[in-house]
Structure formats: structure tokens, C-alpha cells
């Protein structure tokens, strides 16, 4: 295993919650991206965890922007940098609400227009910044403050929506697998055009588990097969070995659900639906990787 660069672009003075995997992921993302980077951040936890003016925990340029506007702002920025001959990385770092809900229009537009940028969605499966309300990305059965009896709808499959734009590179990742995350960001930034990385971001206060278990929960998500690590480069899908293993010999999903308070009291129907959609996704991905579709 190669050690990650020692440079830190997220200093220890963030105002993130204990055990926050969004800020942990961001640490790895920026190690891969380096200093010639602009992070475009819509309303989300990252808008808050940078700190309060005039202080900032960030040692790269951060451009905060309105909730629905990250991808469009990045599009203007990328065009401006390129015409000035600057190769600055333009990276949107947005939560799931800002990606799959309110920001999806701007995201879709920027992907379709071949914008030279990387869009990273860190997905904690709810509106975390406002105190855990359901988003389109909340999984079925999860309790949020606006789904007190558990969400009745399925999680929106943003990856298939993004894939439909036929962009040159997209991947899933997790802060629980930092080497993989680092490598994927590096590769993404080496490819011109629109790139998308979807991070699962376990959230101790929102998912209701204790802060020290964040990495464990992230690993469980992968080992149960609920979160599949893969990358799709120029249409070529490659599933990570750890996820291949999980598909063959999964850890029971109960192990993942039971450590999280948000799934306490999940109905059998919801659990079945969660499992069924997971299995369907596995079949689809395996078939795609085998070239069957």
C-alpha cells in the first residue's frame, strides 16, 4: 500500500461533527487534487464545516454558492480557467440533497455540456446540515425527521442517471477505503471532461451510531453489498474486488442495519425491498461488467 501524500488541505480546525466522513473524504480528495484546485460547495455540511469567516479550515480555494447552483457555477469557472490557459481543478463537493434533489438540473446540464470538472457527491442519505430530513437519496426504511416511521420510497439511483449522460469517468467510493478513493480522484482528474464520483458518507448523528464506528459502518456498507465500489471509465465498468467478494459472500445486511439507530424498527417489507434492490443492482452491474449489456 502506498502512503497518501502528507500535505493536508483540510486542517484540524473544521467545525465538522465527530466522526464525520464527509470531511474525512474531503481530506483524501484534496490530497489527490493538490493545491491548484477550486472546491465549489453548495449549501451542505461542507459549507458549514469550513469554519466561520474570517477563519477557514481549508487550505485550498473554496467557492461557496447557492444550493442548486454548484455544477453551473463550476461550468462557468472551468470555461474561464481553460480560456486563460489555467489547468486548475474545478471540483464540486456537494451533499446528496444538492446533487440528487435541488442540484440535479444543473448537474445534468453540466454533464451534458462536456464541462471539464469533477463532481463529487458525498452522500449521507439525508439533509444533514438542517438536521436529517429525508432526501431523494435516503434509503427505504430509514428514519429521518421527516420520515418518522421510516422512508417508504426507494433511494434515487443517481448513478444510473449520471451514467445515462455517457461521461468519460464515474466511480463510487468511500472514506472507509481511502487508497481507493484517492486513486479514483487522481484518475478522474487526469481525464478531460465531466467526471462524477459518488461517496457514501456515514454520518454518526444522522444515522445514529457512535462516532468512533464511522469507518466500520463504511466498511459494513461495502461488505454487505449495499454500497458497491466500482468505476466506469469510457463506458467500461470495473467492480472493485472487495465488492465482488461481497456479492459472492455478503455479510448479512442486518449487521449493517442493526448498528444504526435510523433503521431501528425497520419493517420486514422495507428490509426486503432494500435487499431486493441491492440484488437487482448486483445483477445489473455484473452483467454490465461481463459485457452482457
Amino acid at each position: 500500500m502506498n502512503p497518501l501524500p502528507s500535505e493536508e488541505y483540510v486542517h484540524k480546525c473544521t467545525t465538522a461533527c465527530a466522526g464525520c466522513t464527509s470531511s474525512l473524504s474531503l481530506r483524501y480528495v484534496l490530497k489527490a487534487a493538490g493545491p491548484d484546485t477550486v472546491l465549489v460547495v453548495p449549501a451542505c455540511c461542507t459549507a458549514v464545516l469550513q469554519g466561520v469567516y474570517p477563519a477557514t479550515a481549508m487550505n485550498v480555494t473554496v467557492y461557496n454558492i447557492a444550493f442548486a447552483a454548484a455544477a453551473a457555477t463550476a461550468a462557468g469557472m472551468a470555461a474561464a480557467f481553460r480560456r486563460q490557459g489555467r489547468s486548475t481543478n474545478v471540483i464540486c463537493y456537494a451533499g446528496d440533497g444538492g446533487t440528487v434533489d435541488i442540484g440535479i438540473q444543473a448537474l445534468s446540464g453540466a454533464l451534458e455540456r462536456s464541462t471539464d470538472f469533477l463532481y463529487i457527491c458525498y452522500d449521507n442519505e439525508a439533509y444533514g446540515n438542517t438536521g436529517m430530513q429525508r432526501s431523494g437519496s435516503t434509503p427505504i426504511g430509514a428514519v429521518t425527521t421527516t420520515t418518522p416511521a421510516g422512508k417508504i420510497d426507494q433511494k434515487k439511483d443517481i448513478d444510473r442517471i449520471v451514467a445515462a449522460h455517457n461521461i468519460p469517468y464515474m466511480a463510487t467510493a468511500s472514506a472507509a477505503y481511502p487508497q481507493d478513493l484517492y486513486a479514483k480522484v487522481k484518475k478522474a482528474l487526469s481525464i478531460p471532461g465531466p467526471k462524477f464520483i459518488h461517496l457514501l458518507s456515514p454520518c454518526p448523528p444522522g444515522w445514529r451510531y457512535s462516532a468512533e464506528r464511522s469507518v466500520e459502518v463504511g466498511k459494513l456498507a461495502v461488505k454487505t453489498g449495499l454500497w458497491v465500489l466500482y468505476e466506469r471509465e469510457h463506458g467500461q465498468l470495473k467492480i472493485n474486488p472487495v465488492s465482488k467478494t461481497a456479492m459472492k459472500r455478503p455479510v448479512p445486511i442486518e449487521d449493517y442495519l442493526s448498528v444504526q439507530g435510523r433503521f431501528r424498527g425497520i419493517s420486514k417489507e422495507a428490509e426486503r425491498a432494500l435487499k431486493a434492490s441491492m440484488e437487482q443492482q448486483h445483477r445489473r452491474l455484473l452483467a454490465e461488467e461481463a459485457g452482457a449489456c
Binding site: 491548484d36 477550486v38 473554496v62 467557492y63 486548475t88
Partner: peptide
């Protein structure tokens, strides 16, 4: 924006 002199824009 000048990435050699990073700044936070629109921070809290």
C-alpha cells in the same frame, strides 16, 4: 480566484 493564494469565498 488565485489558487496560489487560496481563499474562502462566501464562507459562513
Amino acid at each position: 480566484i488565485d489558487t496560489e493564494h487560496p481563499r474562502g469565498y462566501g464562507t459562513m
